[in-house]
Amino acid sequence: MDNKLIVSPSPHVHGKLSTRRLMLDVLIALLPAFAVTIFVYGIPALMVTVVSIASCVLFESLIQRFLLKQRPTIGDLSAVLTGALLAFNLPSSIPLWLVVIGALVAIGIGKMSFGGIGRNPFNPALVGRVFLLLSFPVAMTTFPSPTPDAMSGATPLTFAKEALKSGQSVSQLMDGVSYTDMLFGLKAGSLGEIAALALLIGFVYLLCRKVITWHIPVAILATIAVFTGGLYLSDPEHYLSPIYQVLNGGAILGAVYMATDYVTSPMSKKGMIIYGIGIGLITVFIRVWGAYPEGISFAILIMNAVVPLIDKYVRPTKFGAVKPVKQ
């Protein structure tokens, strides 16, 4: 026989899953929200996304080739996803050179400095976003108004926070607020956070494709809803309603797409619930009592840091970890 037999340990078959396939699925799930954002913000949004993805991929391949001397892994699409998620966290009016800096921080510091995919403790896209938010707060918090009559340029959460600070009551500022607009994306905000419904469609897609499980998103959103719901019931004039809280800001984007990043989230189901609750609580703390109107980015980054601890102590129950049946 000419061709030699191949020998390897079992199993001899492999499922169809690959890193590339998973990343591609997440990108597909982002498409509906992307479509809405293009519809609302037009060409600038497209430009931000393209620049962000292109610079993330470029930086990853450059760093891998010249600094780390690794085998290039841009084919796994993880850099593309980081770029897309970074863009989704930026306002459409941001100068494009800032996007490039954000991408450099996200890929260079957030991901490659730890050794590349799988090793980064923090979500790279959020590292990039938070860097930009702290360094260029004006550019990062100025949003073009989607419609002429909508709340002028401020996101719903910023608007509400300012109004509450100035002594207005919730019922006063709720005048003219339309939940349907929020659901469909007719509000100011970063590219990815505006279209709640489109994001949820992507969530359903991810669940169907079994890319993620429900644990993290549901834990985060439920925690936000329950916590703010409790506050709302205690004093409806001072605290925003839970629906307003869940629909606005990056709550859905963060819960479904950012917090579920495999690398930076716990591996066990129980751990995921704990992680999700933590993010929910910190988000509400920042939103209600903190200086920033929105806090889910910080909440996710803080909980990212806790993940190794969660993974260490929260383990799945082993089969047979029960006492034998008495005879």
Partner: peptide
Amino acid sequence: LRAPAAACIRCGKCGGACPMGLQ
């Protein structure tokens, strides 16, 4: 032939598939 091994992305799918509840 096996596909070349890439880096672990900590997706936890192995833990989900393990019938013995291991990691």
